[in-house]
Design a protein around this nucleic acid. Structure first.
Lengths: 337, 337
DNA sequence: CGACCTGGTGTTATCGCTAACATCACCGGC
DNA sequence: GCCGGTGATGTTAGCGATAACACCAGGTCG
């Protein structure tokens, strides 16, 4: 019975190719000063032995890994999940492995612990998806020296940050409702300590101000359909409410249900707009007009910003925003007259 | 200007504590033969220098990493996303880092490439979320010797596998509809090459067989609300359809919309049951009765199975299923008479 | 009372790689 | 024809851990 010998190492390849291990290393790292013929011999030997470089050994001597750490909340909220997925794909294409540290709640201690775990692994850089203020606060504890990019984080903090242009998306959504003829637009907001929610409130208000429309009180909710439903139950009772902009699609779903229950037809009696464009938004009743963020673009900007820091140590433009798109479906109509 | 010196290494700790680096290593690895007093001195030195062991060096000498590789599709489908999230959390709690390799499509080449990337990283084990047959096929290429667990994979393959008990969940959902008085139950199925979908078809059919109910033709769809809507448009036209079991909640959402458009009230005229219990299912119109899988349990079983293989090399019980729960809401009622 | 174990510690080799320097053949220029 | 430059390669010295073995004091036992 044959015992499987250990994996081939660089010296094994070198022996087979009749060169020194250093030459093998040069081939692997595309150094210029290797004769073409030698390079081919080495490559053949690599293939024959199914040799794969030992990353641990390389990391040990260079002091660098090809690993990026991501800290994210353990939630399946559509926005963060999409972002994470897009980032993993982008990083993978750039040859980086992504190590994900999930955190139950976005508080200071949990995030600090997750960051520490990543530092233990000696990641090349860290991405924190820090959509609310407690998460952003935790970043104050992170020691400098580790390249770090925040996604969806605090716009008022000076750390490198990539984010969807929430205000712009909200502005367009609101303006779309006003343009349809509504006198004003109500807003069902996400949790106040989430920057995404704050940015959307800001854009909504700016759009109302721009046309001197009355600014109704913000209806506070969390991100769930449940809270959207509760908000909708109130809004459905107020006859003057003809247009509602919801901070995400699930809130909009809850509002739709509440309207339906009280016999207020969407869009005939009330118009509704969401945010996120979840895949099923087109199959709400009625199909939902909403704002679609470009998660792939956010992921690419994030990776770019991080790699800039890794190589230069500094970065010139540490703040990037990505504009979302308004997707028009059937939940907006002129107000009843 | 001070130059930041490199991170503290084991020898630095040893020098400060007045011992050899080997003793430091022993303290770190909880070897028994260290005097209590020495242990404390070493620990103090570790703290003072903010020393953290170099994993690369450890991996190099031991030949093992504390990394688990996961291969998953780049999708935000609720089931796979929840599973991934739950697994990352479970692994993190067990002291393992998780490296996620996202794949655009679940075909043979992509999966093989992702597995290779993980092997390059010398992960301790690999988890493949392989919910359809093309993904399962790709696993045939994976060389033995790497501990590997499949989640949601092919029940007919002999590799270690953890999965939700789809058939059981579907059986209960269908039986619930029959018990409500429906003569038979129609089924809107997920893609035929997904094992989840196949298992749910099987459970549905078993429940009908058990009561000698007529087995109507399966209505084929993918997982999207869009295809559920198309299926619903057909079902809504057939007066004898009074109960529909959908392979997931988004399909159910599409069916609900189609029913609503044709004036067939749910649950008064038609009863609908879904699968997955997405967070917003309780806010569909009407709130959806559905089947809830226990993703956390699946994640724990998966991790356990993987670690068993890592340590023992073998495993006794390579197949584990986790039973889901029926969640009753308002989308089921007795048939109209 | 010397042989032998045993708990606590140090010394040395080693993992697989890259960086730095050494070597050597060959080239062109004065 | 000797010198310095250059391209291709080899040699050596680490990176920071663990493993294996060596060592030494002190206690046990025949």
């Amino acid at each position: 019975m044959e015992k499987t010998s250990r994996d081939a190492a660089m010296t094994d390849v070198a022996r087979l190719a009749g060169v020194s291990h250093q030459t093998v290393s040069r081939v692997l790292n595309n150094h210029p000063n290797v004769r073409e013929q030698t390079r081919l011999r080495v490559k053949a030997a690599i293939k024959e032995l199914d040799y794969r470089p030992n990353r641990a050994a390389r990391a040990l001597v260079t002091g660098k890994t090809q690993l990026i750490g991501v800290v994210a909340q353990n939630s399946t909220l559509y926005g963060p999940a999409s972002l994470l997925s897009a980032f993993e794909e982008a990083a993978g294409e750039a040859g980086f492995a992504v190590s994900v540290g999930r955190v139950k709640v976005l508080d200071r201690d949990s995030i600090a612990a997750a960051v520490e775990r990543h530092r233990d692994q000696r990641v090349a850089g860290i991405v924190v998806i820090a959509p609310n203020s407690s998460a952003a606060d935790a970043l104050a504890d992170v020691p400098a020296g580790v390249p770090l990019v925040t996604v969806d984080g605090d716009p008022d903090r000076s750390t490198p940050l990539v984010t969807v242009d929430q205000a712009k998306g909200a502005f367009e959504a609101t303006k779309h409702l006003i343009d349809a003829g509504h006198e004003t637009v109500w807003h069902v907001s996400g949790p106040a300590d989430w920057f995404d929610a704050a940015g959307r409130v800001e854009g909504w208000r700016a759009a109302l101000d721009a046309t001197s429309a009355e600014v109704p009180p913000v209806v506070a909710a969390d991100w769930s359909a449940a809270s959207g439903y509760r908000a909708g139950q109130m809004l459905a009772r107020m006859p003057e409410v003809t247009a509602v902009f919801c901070s995400n699609d699930h809130l909009a779903l809850g509002v739709l249900r509440a309207m339906s229950e009280r016999g207020r037809r969407v869009p005939h009696d009330v118009s509704v707009v969401g945010f996120d464009d979840v895949p099923e938004a087109a199959y709400f009743i009625p199909p939902l007009t909403t704002v679609r963020p470009d998660f792939a673009a956010v992921a690419h900007e994030t990776l770019g910003l991080l790699l800039e820091q890794v190589s230069d140590g500094e970065t010139t433009r540490p703040r990037r925003t990505v504009a979302p798109t308004l997707v028009k479906r059937d939940s907006v109509a002129p107000p009843p007259r």
